[in-house]
Design a protein around this nucleic acid. Structure first.
Length: 280
DNA sequence: TCAGGCGACGGGCTTACTTCA
DNA sequence: CATGAAGTAAGCCCGTCGCCT
């Protein structure tokens, strides 16, 4: 789905341009991308790839929605594509599915390297061990989930991540909303979850973030639409007035017209036509 | 009891890589 | 050796299910 909205006459960028050469077309497929021009003098731009990135951007996203300060052009863009690591390059010695967390397969050094190479510095600074009871009941349930699943193939086990686990993942997501294989395994190990769970969490998080962003954008567009409607009606009124003046101008010879010094409007001559024009 | 949140899953698509004729 | 088709693996998105609060 590519939503393109264009209002007004300001110059806009096409989605193709926005996507750029290096854009990941696959992930672009469902990204919300639109460009809205409103025909004002300045240009502002908001890039949306993650949830509500308020701050220094031209448009601030607040709890209640957008704080509108008359943007001219709004471009919602996907984040720059993040290069994926090939799993074969990583030479991971364990299966990507059903990893046995009881015996951590990541070498300490590898893990350290993954952490350091990752933009998620929180990972290294927090480096919690959720396996040692820090994760609470959910973590315990999570740790025993592997064997549970083998016993219980038919029904999917419902797991609630602990607050700590959620917060940790949230921090990771803020830094980078996509996973590379190494990071996935590092997070899985640190949170005592399966890599698949990390993967699913990120997928769901992206989906929900996108949904939330769309709601915000929708709200913003509604407001803009309303503002434009009001302006449109105001301009219509002005046009009507000008037309009335113009038609009057055609009927009355210019020599008989006068301009009111106070309101600067063209006034018809006072009757009778022989008398000098009197300002209104 | 009901609604919403959220973890989990399956299916479809794309991309990168490998194999083979 | 170069090349294109077919196969495979992995990741992502989307829609949905169903448990839990």
């Amino acid at each position: 789905m590519e939503l393109t909205l264009s209002l007004g006459e300001s110059k806009e960028r096409s989605l193709e341009e926005i996507a750029g050469d290096g854009g990941d077309r696959q992930s672009m497929g469902m990204e919300l991308g639109f460009c809205m021009g409103l025909g004002f003098a300045q240009e502002r731009r908001v890039e949306v790839g993650e949830e509500s990135r308020g701050g220094d951007e031209g448009l601030k996203v607040e709890e209640g929605g957008w704080s509108v300060d008359l943007p001219v052009q709004l471009n919602l863009l996907p984040l720059a594509p993040i290069p994926r690591l090939d799993s074969t390059q990583l030479a991971l010695p364990w299966s990507t599915e059903d990893m046995n967390l009881e015996t951590p397969p990541v070498e300490e050094e590898e893990e350290r390297a993954a952490i350091l190479s990752s933009p998620i510095r929180m990972v290294s600074s927090l480096h919690m061990n959720f396996a040692s009871g820090g994760g609470g009941v959910a973590a315990e349930r999570a740790s025993s989930r592997g064997s549970d699943e083998e016993e219980n193939d038919k029904g999917r086990k419902k797991l609630r991540l602990s607050k700590e686990q959620s917060a940790f993942l949230e921090e990771s997501f803020k830094e980078q909303n996509t996973l590379n294989p190494k990071l996935k395994f590092v997070l899985a190990k640190q949170l005592n979850l399966r890599p698949r769970q990390i993967e699913v969490w990120f997928q769901n998080r992206r989906a929900r973030s996108k949904l939330k962003q769309m709601e915000i954008d929708c709200e913003f567009l509604k407001r803009r639409c309303e503002m434009l409607r009001e302006e449109n009606s105001r301009l219509h009124k002005e046009v009507t007035e000008l037309r009335a003046i113009k038609s009057f101008h055609i009927q009355v010879p210019p020599t008989t017209l006068s301009i009111c010094p106070s309101c600067e409007r063209v006034s018809p001559p006072a009757s009778p036509p022989q008398s000098p024009p009197t300002p209104r």
